[in-house]
């Protein structure tokens, strides 16, 4: 008891400072949690803002692309089809009936030739807008068709192989995949000076894979992300927005051997049934 009484002042101070220390620790902990939480919220908001910004860029790009496409069609129609039809009209004017029969025949023949050219031109325009092979025969035929045309030029050796394409995808999915392939091939032809392009298709675990190899100058995933954020690279933004619509993943990489570049498109397809 005596021992206890003598130690009471020290106990009082221990009690006081201990309690203060514990309180400081508890309050510190709470403040830390609150601040950490705030930082997490701020980070989330920032992330959301960045996502919105990206969405805006993609939307702008798709609108711009649409406008460019319209301008292209308008230019094709105005510059090519317009003058051709006007020339045909010239051959078939009212004076034709007053001319001799051989001139009439010659004029009609010329006009027919011009109209044939115009038909061919309009067919080309409509084919470039929506390839009929894709609609009627599917992705494999459309890609084959495209690659045959490219190979026909003799500059690039383009080939494709579809391993697991036993059933067609939904038309809108096929169109989107075809447009992505078309854009990628366009980019390769324009920028990479490649000597071969090879496309393979596979199907594995509810995923439809398209792999594209080429040996020219390509881009990696980092370049793709950078170009997507900048105002350049309209085609790449289109690829990005199309992959978003498909809920697909696209990956640009350089092969381990450093000799060629590879683009992998991974499209999830749940309702794709394998026919064995």
């Amino acid at each position: 008891m005596i021992l206890l009484q003598s130690s009471l002042p020290s106990v009082s101070s221990a009690l006081f400072f201990g309690t203060m220390g514990m309180l400081a620790l508890a309050i510190g902990l709470i403040v830390f949690i609150v601040f950490h939480q705030r930082r997490v919220i701020r980070y989330q908001v920032q992330l959301q803002e960045m996502e919105e910004e990206q969405q805006k860029i993609l939307l702008n790009a798709s609108i711009r692309w649409q406008e460019e496409e319209r301008q292209k069609i308008a230019a094709d129609l105005h510059d090519d089809a317009g003058p051709l039809l006007a020339t045909a009209r010239l051959y078939l004017n009212e004076n034709l009936v007053h001319q001799d029969i051989s001139t009439q025949l010659q004029s009609i023949y010329n006009a027919k030739q011009i109209i044939d050219d115009t038909i061919q031109l309009i067919r080309n325009i409509s084919h470039s807008l929506m390839p009929p092979t894709l609609k009627n025969f599917g992705l494999e035929s459309a890609v084959n068709d495209l690659f045959q045309k490219i190979s026909g030029s003799g500059v690039v050796n383009a080939s494709c192989r579809f391993h697991d394409y036993r059933q067609r995808l939904r038309p809108e999915q096929e169109l989107l995949i075809f447009r992505i392939i078309q854009e990628l091939v366009n980019n390769i032809l324009k920028h990479s000076s490649a000597s071969f392009i090879h496309v393979t298709q596979n199907y594995n675990e509810d995923k439809f894979f398209i792999r594209l190899h080429h040996d020219g100058r390509g881009i990696t995933q980092a370049d793709f992300d950078r170009l997507n954020k900048s105002s350049l690279g309209l085609g790449l933004k289109n690829i990005q927005s199309r992959t978003k619509v498909l809920q697909a993943k696209i990956e640009f990489e350089r092969d381990l051997s450093q000799t060629y570049f590879k683009v992998t498109l991974e499209v999830p397809v749940e309702d794709y049934e394998m026919i064995s």
Binding site: A14, G18, T19, M22, L23, L25, A26, I27, I30
Partner: peptide, 8 residues
Amino acid sequence: IYSAGTFF
């Protein structure tokens, strides 16, 4: 706060 303060 209560537990930390009343611990000692």
